[in-house]
Design a protein around this nucleic acid. Structure first.
Lengths: 213, 213
DNA sequence: TCTAAATTTGACCAGCTAGTCAAGAATTTT
DNA sequence: AAAATTCTTGACTAGCTGGTCAAATTTAGA
């Protein structure tokens, strides 16, 4: 009871609270994204966060709550750039920007990508409802935009749903299969300009296709 | 010792052995692919396979051995169609066939795809070496083929490595993110002709791109 | 059918798991 | 500086985990 529900000050967090919650979230992202929900242990998250398990459980009441928090954080960051696709913008430019942003996210925060992938692969016990309500609605909205673009002849006549899936798949692949990409490309995958190279290659394929021109 | 290494008959399996090993492998695929290696329990696999844990451990000596076996089986099935890409065939036709086969595999055996994805996301503790040796060599070989095709003007000038990654990403997405795809597409994702629809859409995007023509 | 081998199981164990509790240490407020 | 609050921890528990063992049951070969 006197755990963390009690907020003597009006919901504001102390310096220590802010710091520790951030440490815990980063550790949780690391551990959950590699070991999955069932495979992760609170002990391991605490160790990674540099504090005792007891102390960690002072900030988050249970393993499930840590997980929920990490997932929610991830999902929100996901939605933003997708939502930002502008119906009034130039189709190719809008999609190019979206793909670029997603690739950047995969590059900078691959753990979040893997955490979400893991959740979905598990059958989405937590985000299942989110997927079929809020995300579906948002996707339907963007699909309508893409359809308009196609009708206006500003985009090739492709199935909008599968176009979105294809973009998601390719951009997240570089985070989710990071180890495989690195195993195949070797050290060049760690060089500075790599993410730009990826962006260029992916954009080239998705925008122009592979048929000779 | 008198466990399963002993094969009084020259390595041949009895009817019961063949049956049970198959049951165990299917159960292992199901459980490992959803819960991951660490999250999966031998109890759960045994329950799914319809036998006692003790009996399961009579056929496979440890959890790790069950996992290894399931992974190896999966990896082999993976390699076949990739290896079958024919340097002497028509480039577009060869890639179309490869994409189609991979989509079919995702459709028919999504658990295997998720198992492999999970292994790689975990950092590929088991297949790491395989990735950087055998798979890398095979990929390098096919990259050379693609380069030749491009030089001959029979394929658009795209980065062969990223082309391969793009194909892997898109085709496996429909297995790994099955739940998400179904949440967004609703019941149409379960209709008979769905996998053909996916194949058509994905091929259209990858072959022709999304730029208006 | 009889027997040897193969299969199956319940009871069991040591180590790990999520979470509790009460008490001590650090910090903030007065 | 004292008091109140917040933060931190070691010791503990009940249940789960992978794996063992000896004994029972089933199957197949002569």
């Amino acid at each position: 009871m006197a755990r963390e529900a009690t907020r003597p000050n009006g919901g504001k967090q102390s310096r220590i609270q802010t710091e520790n919650r951030a440490l815990i979230m980063q550790a949780a992202l690391d551990v959950f994204s590699t070991d999955g929900y069932r495979g992760a242990t609170v002990d391991r998250i605490a160790e990674r966060a540099g504090m005792s398990k007891t102390n960690l459980l002072y900030y988050y009441p249970s393993k499930e709550e840590i997980y929920r928090s990490a997932i929610e954080q991830t999902v929100e960051a996901w939605l933003d750039p997708f939502d930002a696709i502008d119906p009034d913008g130039d189709p190719i430019e809008e999609l190019r920007r979206y793909i670029t942003v997603k690739l950047k996210m995969s590059d900078e925060n691959p753990e979040a990508s893997r955490l979400f992938a893991n959740e979905v692969q598990r059958g989405a016990p937590l985000v299942g409802e989110f997927l079929s309500t809020r995300l579906k609605a948002l996707v339907d909205e963007k699909v309508a935009v893409i359809r308009t673009w196609i009708d206006e002849g500003r985009l090739a006549p492709v199935d909008p749903y599968h176009l979105i899936f294809t973009i998601w798949a390719t951009t997240q692949h570089y985070a989710d299969f990071e180890v495989q990409v690195q195993a195949i490309l070797g050290k060049q995958a760690k060089k500075p300009g790599f993410s730009e190279q990826v962006a260029h290659a992916v954009l080239s394929i998705l925008l122009n296709g592979i048929r000779p021109r």
